[in-house]
């Protein structure tokens, strides 16, 4: 195991993947990059976050996009590439960090310090969690989960050759509804420690 530690957490909507990533970042004292990645970029480029945050982690609309000589008009695609470049730059600098989503497991797959997770959960558990967090009905929660997962899948599969959620793409794919979110996080923490000690 190299000194650099890059942990990527891909997740289904409502699976608690983000909470798990927060837990790991805290335990290993690493910066966590999620939607705040855009803030890092906007601060560095001296541009407004409001301008770009609405395009974060969204799939490109193929019917309203065109690419000429590698230039695409799609705001979603440009913002995604901006984040990928930023992550690569951080990785090239030798930084250690935790990333939630953003195709990080594929974008950073060539770095030795990469440990990648995919967190999924049973639909029932995801619905209950989303109902509670957002204060919405069961059907609304279900619709929200389906819509978000559809977008995440489309986003991921456009930029990566391997499919979103395909277990061959991650070191561990885990169902958080079996052990519960906190126990899953602890288990993954143990795995990371074992990898560091390798």
């Amino acid at each position: 195991m190299s000194k650099q530690l890059i942990i990527t957490v891909s997740r289904e909507f409502g699976s608690g993947g983000h909470v798990i990533a927060e837990h790991i970042a805290e335990k290993f004292e690493l910066p966590l990059y999620d939607h705040n990645l855009l803030r890092e970029i906007t601060d560095e480029k001296n541009i407004s976050l409001d301008y770009i945050k609405r395009y974060d982690e969204l799939p490109k609309n193929p019917w309203f996009s065109r690419t000429i000589r590698g230039y695409s008009n799609s705001p979603e695609e440009n913002i995604a590439n901006m984040q990928f470049e930023y992550l690569k730059k951080k990785a090239d600098q030798g930084d250690s960090f935790v990333v939630v989503g953003r195709c990080a497991e594929s974008i950073l797959k060539n770095y030795d310090g990469l440990i990648s997770f995919f967190v999924l959960a049973d639909m029932e558990a995801k619905v209950k969690r989303i109902e509670k967090i957002h204060g919405i009905s069961q059907s609304q929660a279900e619709a929200l989960i389906k819509r978000n997962d559809k977008e995440r899948k489309a986003y991921h599969n456009y930029y990566c050759t391997v499919k979103w959620g395909d277990s061959r793409n991650y070191d561990i794919s885990i169902n958080s509804s079996k052990l519960g979110i906190s126990h899953t996080a602890e288990m993954l923490e143990q795995y990371i420690k074992a990898r560091i000690e390798e």
């Binding site: 906007t42 000429i68 695409s72 440009n78």
Partner: peptide, 13 residues
């Protein structure tokens, strides 16, 4: 396409 892309790449989608 190129103009809007250059703008977006610099943070002005």
């Amino acid at each position: 396409v190129v103009g809007t892309s250059v703008a977006a790449r610099e943070g002005y989608p």
